[in-house]
């Protein structure tokens, strides 16, 4: 009997272990096996009814216990698997959402870039051609003159075109306000301007490439062109056009006043002639200092003065070299004596500066100052301008405001209030220039 019981228990344990591994179907097999064993016991101990009933009861208890135990374990396992599955499902859903958003974003970006390439006439082969010619320009001066004449817009022409574009944009801005239609960036306006003026796509593209090249070449020597480039790239306020024009007028007025004080006995006509002459030539030390400190404070003036003196030093060194060369050329066998050399070297040149150079330094200081002031705003705007077109949608604008701690502290209602002011007609296109205008309001 004990032997059979032992076999029975061993069988049960074996089956229990197996069930854990295999699964729910095994439960039926266990029941079947136990029933078989029971029948075997019944046959063996038929004669003893009492013993038979005891065994049956005990076996039934063991069977029930095992059933419950297995069911509990299985339900726990199933629960665990369910949780894992749900967890994985959530991860996959999140990933799916992320990638679908990314695809959507890339589609928009792709669309914008395609439009941008067409609009700005970015033609790689043409650019290569221009760059190749530019390289030739460095090695062959004669060819370069022809190239500049045909391809590179002169500073004077560039300024005229820029003014035409500015005036046309002012008119367009007025129309937008009157008709309550969304405004466009200066870059897009420039494209429309050339399209309207020249019509032919190739011609428009050629103009845009030429403008682009001229901006790159002249930005370091002309403030107006530098400013135009920055406006196209949404790096500065459009109001700076007016501000810099006023600054230029102030400089000219101070120069006129300076000349009147310096030459009180000269007639108006003579003074005007002198003034026009100054615009094309040099400003004396007293003149540029009076103008500088009339416009800027002592502190700022000192900073600019250091920059002016640095330029003057460079110019004077160049003049010394020129003098030495002239002397060498005039001497027999190009030999200069030590005395002659020392004489030129000890020459103290006046601290004079070309008017154009002075104007550039003063205006450049202002542009740099404004750029520094706008830097944190521009950084945030570009961060949230996902399609890099200089325009935010409502969602991007709210994200931008939320990223600024002091605005976030004022609450969502403040941001919505700001949004309503910037976009009162719900055009949902928030231009860099317009957002900047409201951020500058006091």
């Amino acid at each position: 009997m004990k032997f059979f019981l032992k076999i029975f228990i061993t069988n049960i344990e074996y089956i229990k272990d197996k069930t854990e591994e295999i699964g729910n179907e095994i439960i039926n097999n266990i029941s079947q096996t136990i029933n078989n064993i029971l029948h075997l016991f019944i046959k063996l101990f038929e004669k003893n009814n009492n013993f038979q009933s005891i065994i049956r009861k005990q076996l039934e208890i063991v069977l029930n216990y095992l059933k419950e135990d297995i069911e509990r374990e299985f339900s726990n396992k199933i629960e665990k698997i369910k949780k894992e599955l749900n967890k994985n499902l959530k991860v996959y859903n999140d990933e799916k959402e992320f990638y679908s958003n990314k695809i959507e974003r890339l589609e928009i970006e792709n669309k914008y870039m395609t439009e941008h390439l067409i609009k700005s006439g970015f033609n790689i082969s043409k650019k290569f051609e221009i760059l190749n010619k530019e390289n030739e320009n460095k090695t062959n001066k004669k060819n370069s003159i022809e190239f500049i004449k045909t391809k590179l817009i002169s500073i004077k022409n560039m300024k005229e075109i820029i003014n035409e574009i500015y005036n046309s944009k002012i008119e367009y801005d007025k129309k937008c306000i009157e008709n309550k239609i969304p405004n466009i960036t200066m870059e897009l306006h420039m494209f429309n301007f050339f399209s309207k003026k020249y019509g032919l796509k190739n011609l428009v593209n050629e103009w845009i490439i030429n403008i682009d090249m001229a901006i790159k070449i002249y930005s370091n020597e002309d403030n107006d062109i530098n400013l135009f480039g920055k406006i196209l790239r949404n790096e500065i306020d459009e109001n700076e056009i007016t501000f810099l024009n006023k600054l230029k007028n102030s400089i000219n007025e101070y120069l006129q006043l300076c000349l009147i004080n310096k030459y009180p006995l000269k007639s108006k006509k003579e003074l005007n002639k002198l003034y026009l002459n100054k615009l094309e030539n040099y400003l004396n030390e007293d003149e540029w200092k009076i103008i500088l400190y009339s416009i800027y404070s002592k502190e700022e003036g000192k900073i600019i003065e250091r920059r002016i003196l640095k330029i003057i030093k460079e110019l004077n060194n160049n003049r010394k070299k020129e003098l030495l060369n002239d002397l060498k050329n005039s001497c027999k066998k190009n030999i200069v004596t030590r005395d002659e050399y020392d004489k030129i070297n000890s020459n103290k040149f006046d601290l004079i500066i070309p008017y154009k150079e002075f104007l550039y330094i003063i205006m450049d200081y202002r542009i740099c100052y404004k750029e520094k002031y706008l830097k944190p705003f521009i950084y945030l705007f570009k961060k949230y301008d996902s399609d890099i077109n200089g325009i935010l949608n409502e969602e991007e604008f709210i994200k931008l405001c939320d990223s600024i701690s002091f605005i976030k502290k004022l609450g969502h209602s403040y941001i919505i209030q700001l949004l309503n002011k910037i976009d009162p007609y719900i055009l949902k296109e928030l231009l860099f220039q317009i957002v900047l205008k409201y951020f500058q309001m006091k």
Partner: peptide
């Protein structure tokens, strides 16, 4: 525009001014 405290006085400044001031303060902290 936004209300801000400058030299213990409440003043109205632009959002851009405030953004700039915060940037300078952060730079100084760093």
């Amino acid at each position: 525009m936004i209300e801000d405290i400058n030299n213990d006085q409440q003043v109205t400044i632009s959002l851009l001014d405030k953004l700039c001031i915060d940037e300078i303060n952060n730079e100084n902290k760093e």
